Simulated assay, not measured.
Amino acid sequence: MSGRVPDPRIRPATDEDWPRIWPFFDATVQEGETYAFPLDLTAETGRGWWMERPPGETVVLEDDGRILGSAKMGPNRPGHGDHVGTASFMVAPEARGRGVGRALGEHAVAWHRGRGYRGIQFNAVVETNTAAVALWRSLGFEVVGTVPGAFRSPAHGYVGLHVMHLPLA
């Protein structure tokens, strides 16, 4: 990923972007297959779950005036754990399968690398989210463990949550 030109469609999210993120954020949460967020979030409480503040950052991928996806990233843990980052990603349903997740994933890796993080840890990748697992593996992440039955999927029942890691140092 080094030497890649940054994707010009990705930029820091602003508070004014939230009304355009909320519809696909809410749709993703309501699908119930990829995030363990509460189902009763409102636009205002959802904002608190997604819009990062420093030292983290939330970004959007915007194309032709439409926000197609968003990612948030920052330290995985505070204090003695702040040298390892984490990130979360959401892609608008109509933009899935079009490389939006990959572009956001590559951006997140470069963002963490550029800030001197020693690695990236994804704490909870649903094992039945095969597209995400394949994408993260293609970017160099490895499954370092799976918590059996830790996620309740509406479609698959109790399934595992992968912890995935990418070393950066």
Rank of each mutant, 00 (worst) to 15 (best):
T28N: 04
A36E: 07
R118C: 14
E62T: 12
H107A: 05
A103I: 00
P55T: 09
A27W: 00
G85D: 13
F89Q: 04
H112M: 08
L39Y: 13
M90P: 05
Y35T: 14
R115A: 03
W111G: 01
L68S: 00
R102Y: 12
W111V: 11
M90V: 07
E44N: 04
E31C: 06
G101M: 09
H107V: 03
L104S: 02
S70F: 03
R115F: 11
E44P: 10
R98F: 10
F37G: 03
T34V: 12
V60H: 01
G119K: 09
G69R: 01
R113Q: 15
M73H: 07
K72P: 07
V29I: 13
D63L: 08
E106P: 10
G79P: 07
V109P: 01
T45E: 06
G101I: 07
G81K: 10
M90R: 01
V100G: 03
A108F: 04
V59P: 02
G97D: 06
H107D: 03
L39P: 15
G48V: 03
F37D: 12
L41V: 11
D82W: 14
V91L: 03
V29Y: 03
M51P: 09
H83W: 15
R113P: 15
G48W: 01
E62M: 04
G32V: 11
E57Y: 06
T86F: 05
Y35W: 15
L104C: 06
D82Y: 14
G46Y: 06
A108V: 10
G81Q: 12
P78Q: 09
D63K: 11
A92W: 05
Q30P: 14
W111Y: 12
E52K: 08
T42Y: 14
F37W: 15
G99H: 06
G97Q: 06
R96P: 05
G99E: 00
D64W: 08
